[in-house]
Design a protein around this nucleic acid. Structure first.
Length: 257
DNA sequence: CAGGCAATAT
DNA sequence: CATATTGCCT
């Protein structure tokens, strides 16, 4: 057996998070009613196709050193973002918290921070301009979701104290949330967010290719715990092959629009 | 260390 | 062009 054979594999293996890095998240940091607010959806979701049912929501955080594909902020994803911010209140709406509340598999704090920054600029532009503000193409995304009234007021009446989240063990929980969610989810929460890879040209055309959805139905049956990075890279490779090196990842929630 | 924001990079 | 990354500050 040559090492050539296990070449890619050993590198892949090395990049895997060590077992102690994958601490199971056993309890939610989101208060029950808050969670409910996000979970309850009287209306079914026409958008995401009736196709993919609510299971097999694995797609994990890839190893640290590997670069993720660019996140595509779909209107659905943005909606979820706005909802999270709205429910958290301006004061608590910081990247980590938002990310956690959104509980979208694969979403990183950086993703949220970057988006939040742009969103703030958008809000600022809206209030200040009052009509003079222009709407570049970037605003289309933001315009796709109604902006809660209190966002626009620099007023001190932020009110909206969220039911509140246990800040005690905050650090651990948040860190693990994304990873843990992919493998073992809190029973109470059920699986409701699916992350599907969606490939297309982000910049070339204004519309999505919608060529296909890569669904992770299979998981690594490895007894030892690690994140199913394998699926991730597989899809990435497919994507790269498909569009010539440009891969984007679209995460969209199964529920909630 | 996390957050915010502007500049810059891809 | 949309998002990521970086730098500098709080």
């Amino acid at each position: 057996m040559r090492e050539d054979e296990s070449d890619w594999f050993s590198r892949w293996e090395q990049d895997l998070p060590s077992p102690d890095e994958l601490i199971p998240l056993s309890q939610s940091l989101i208060s029950p009613d808050l969670a409910l607010a996000f979970d309850i959806r009287p209306q079914p979701q026409p958008n995401s196709s009736a196709e993919f049912a609510a299971d097999s929501s694995d797609l994990a955080e890839p190893a640290r050193t590997l670069k993720r594909p660019r996140l595509v902020w779909t209107p659905q994803l943005h909606k979820r973002f706005v909802d999270a911010v709205a429910h958290l209140g301006i004061k608590n709406a910081v990247p980590k918290t938002i990310m956690t509340l959104m509980s979208v598999d694969g979403l990183t704090r950086e993703n949220v921070a970057s988006h939040l920054q742009k969103y703030r600029l958008y809000l600022k532009r809206m209030q200040g301009g009052g009509g003079g503000g222009s709407d570049p193409a970037t605003d289309r995304l933001f315009a796709s979701s109604p902006v809660p009234a209190h966002f626009l007021h620099p007023n001190r009446s932020d009110h909206f104290m969220p039911s509140f989240v246990p800040v005690a063990t905050l650090q651990q929980q948040q860190q693990m949330a994304a990873v843990a969610a992919s493998h073992l989810q809190p029973p109470q929460f059920h699986h409701r967010q699916i992350a599907a890879a969606h490939f297309g040209s982000p910049t070339g055309n204004g519309k999505f290719d919608a060529s296909f959805l890569a669904r992770q139905t299979q998981r690594m049956s490895t007894p030892t715990l690690h994140s199913p990075v394998g699926n991730y890279v597989e899809d990435l490779e497919s994507a790269n092959a498909a569009n010539g090196g440009r891969a984007v990842l679209t995460l969209f929630p199964t529920r909630d629009d």
